[in-house]
Design a protein around this nucleic acid. Structure first.
Lengths: 355, 355
DNA sequence: TTGAAAGCGGTACCAG
DNA sequence: CTGGTACCGCTTTCAA
């Protein structure tokens, strides 16, 4: 529990001045501090296990090397933690840490959270949402470089703020095209629900791909059924428990959990996957999509990338050389919102339809 | 982007002194600052949107009101984020924030992570592990009040450090007893793997409960099969795809995912759950256990509690009145390791065996 | 009741 | 090349 050594302690032990110690520790020593003095300082520092107090440094530099992170429930939420992980990883590479606050889905807490973070003089701010949605940019976000991950401003803001979201339309279109290329024509779209714009964007992608292929969309096969194993199971039962001729040959689910429920339903009806029925998920949820029996063909949500790009955009504006900002497509009517591609993961739940 | 107001700005605007401002903001004003001056100070603070710079305060007080959080992969990992959420929630209630670093499962990074945190003068430290295991207590943990969550010291340490883990033995025994009370006698234990001591503790609980009930354990029905949907599926196929008389009437899985795989296997064999077969999971993983078809009977891992109790033990040692430290059972031979009860969640995947 | 001053630890400027 | 000093913003003590 002994008090940590300070620069003064080191200076005394090394018979040098505080300034010399400071310079040595900031690489500014050469040409200002003699080789011998430097040697003595390093040695003393080692002995005392000295390392500079970052709080003091922050106060002095008016720069904390900390990025504040506001999330609604991302830490708690299953795979959305990956957004934060992506952001953290990049930050750490550049000597930054993140200070996070979770508002636990309580809108009222965001203002306070931002304030708390700002009082700690964070150098930048990130807003991370667990389910894709539009948000009101919290007060205070404009006072430091900041960005949004997995969310975007509900209303155009006077001070534009970069946002990074998945390219849902193209992701869904890719999945649909995958099925079409396998030879499917009877495709049902059993999407999630309107709790997130992602749902309708995915429907949009589905319709685009069908239209491009000149395939008709059966409207009673376009349904919004929720995001759960349970709801996926129930929906699949309705759609599949019919005469063979009336059955779709492929199902597109709103996410991997719903897809898992659909697999369960299909199996209980004696349908084999992918022989009798193809199923596509969404998210590429770790431990679900890759581990299902059969492993799910799905569309990967670019969680890590979102966190990383959002963080990069902040670091860049802080003057860090944090790599190239990639040239990403922009959301129609909101050029500050960049869309990150969603990759198709073709696995074992899709195959050509039975002849 | 205007510079934030300081106490001096407020003092000037309110025609008072810096000290007065400080006192007002620390509730130490009454009896030292005139009512009118206080009024003017509040008003000025409001106008300038003043709030004290916490970095400066930290430097001055030698107390940052920040708890450092070291995890191997907990942020990334699905439901283990709940440990952190529990810790954060409690911390926040007492005006603390957490500064987290993820070592991404790289042992070598822990030392550096702790150092980084300590340089920021965190008031305490938490080590959060994503899969229950023993660890080497990182250097530096003894310099501030600290605790372990979901892990415990591999070797007895000279400076004991509180650790909080789930009571796996009793949890598993409870699940087994639940099956026995339903009337099951032919119970297979298809546990995870030895990557974590939890696996053998759960076996131990299983055997205890069987023995207490005077039931024999069929050794070929005690298997370690991994933690995945896939491996659960495969194992269940082996155990279930036999003559009716040779089949267990209940399966205990290592976790909910493996249990899900077992459900899948059972359904594909035409077995109805719970009518023909009962299945018990472990973890109560959100979105899996509660959403499976049928909803899984399982044992809840006390993630939030672990985070909360670990944090509480730190706050308590920091002199905060953070509630009562509960009287929890201790691990044999390691009194510093407290075990938190795991509650049974009886749902729809268990029922009395078919007559 | 008020205000001036010291000091937390580090950095940077400037005179020696 | 070296060491003294001012300052970052806040709190606390002490003298007026």
């Amino acid at each position: 529990m002994a008090r940590k050594a300070t620069a003064l302690d080191v200076a005394r032990l090394a018979r040098a001045s505080r300034s010399a110690v400071s310079m040595v520790f900031n690489g500014r020593a050469d040409g200002s501090v003699s080789k011998e003095a430097q040697e003595r300082i390093w040695e003393a520092a080692r002995q005392l296990e000295y390392s500079p107090n970052q709080i003091a440094r922050s106060l002095r530099d008016q720069r904390s090397h900390v990025i504040g992170l506001v999330s609604n429930a991302a830490v708690t939420s299953a795979f959305d933690g990956a957004i934060i992980a992506g952001a953290n990883a990049l930050a750490e590479r550049f000597g930054f840490l993140t200070l996070s606050t979770d508002t636990e889905n309580d809108e009222h807490r965001t203002v306070g959270a931002v304030r708390t973070l700002l009082d700690r003089t964070v150098d930048g701010l990130l807003y991370v949402l667990s389910g894709l949605n539009s948000i009101a940019v919290p007060q205070g976000f404009h006072t430091v470089p900041s960005a949004l991950a997995h969310c975007f401003p509900a209303h155009p803001t006077d001070q534009p703020i970069p946002a990074f979201i998945p390219d849902e339309v193209r992701g869904s279109a890719t999945a649909t095209r995958h099925l079409i290329e396998l030879g499917h024509t009877r495709i049902a779209f059993l999407g999630g629900s309107f709790t997130t714009p992602a749902a309708s964007w995915r429907e949009q992608g589905f319709r685009q791909a069908m239209a491009s292929a000149g395939l008709p969309v059966r409207e009673d096969w376009v349904q919004y059924i929720g995001w759960n194993i349970t709801t996926g199971h129930a929906a699949a039962m309705r759609v599949l428990d019919v005469a063979d001729a009336d059955r779709p040959s492929a199902l597109i689910a709103g996410n991997d959990r719903a897809a898992a429920g659909m697999v369960l339903a299909a199996v209980s009806l004696g349908l084999r996957i992918p022989d009798d029925l193809s199923i596509v998920g969404y998210d590429d949820e770790f431990g679900i999509a890759d581990q299902m029996v059969p492993a799910l063909t799905t569309v990967a949500l670019p969680q890590l990338r979102m966190g990383e790009e959002a963080m990069r955009s902040v670091l860049l504006r802080l003057g860090l050389d944090a790599g190239e900002a990639p040239d990403l497509p922009r959301l129609d009517g909101a050029p500050e919102v960049r869309m990150i591609p969603c990759a198709l993961r073709a696995r074992d739940s899709t195959a050509p339809p039975a002849a």
